[in-house]
Design a protein around this nucleic acid. Sequence first.
DNA 1: TCCTTGACGGAGA
DNA 2: ATCTCCGCCAAGG
Length: 109
Amino acid sequence: MTTPANTQTTHQQDAILVLLAQIPAGQVSTYGAIAGAAGLPGYARFVGQVLRRLPKDTKLPWHRVINAQGKLSFPEHSAPFIEQKKRLLKEGIELINNKISLKKYQQKC
DNA sequence: TCCTTGACGGAGA
DNA sequence: ATCTCCGCCAAGG
């Protein structure tokens, strides 16, 4: 076989994508929570990098991932911010002052 | 190989 | 509750 060099992070990336697909509509998760669930505590930033690399036409619910503060990790005037907020509202997630109540919407499982 | 960047998180003022 | 600073880790220049 050809030397499978980079397997470690690649495998973890796949785990992150799987967890992302696990998030049901109407609920959200945080970068840190996904990282921890993937067995990578403290890798919140890495999760962000993985999502950033997702293709524009991905079927994965990337919009259900927010930061630990319950807010969207995009500038309020940016296009992705508007798009994410739009999708969340469409799923029945309530944003109060551009903030989401993790208490109510964060996936517990 | 070193420095900078980034869809983060948490503590402090 | 808002803002700033520091620590975290991987990827890119």
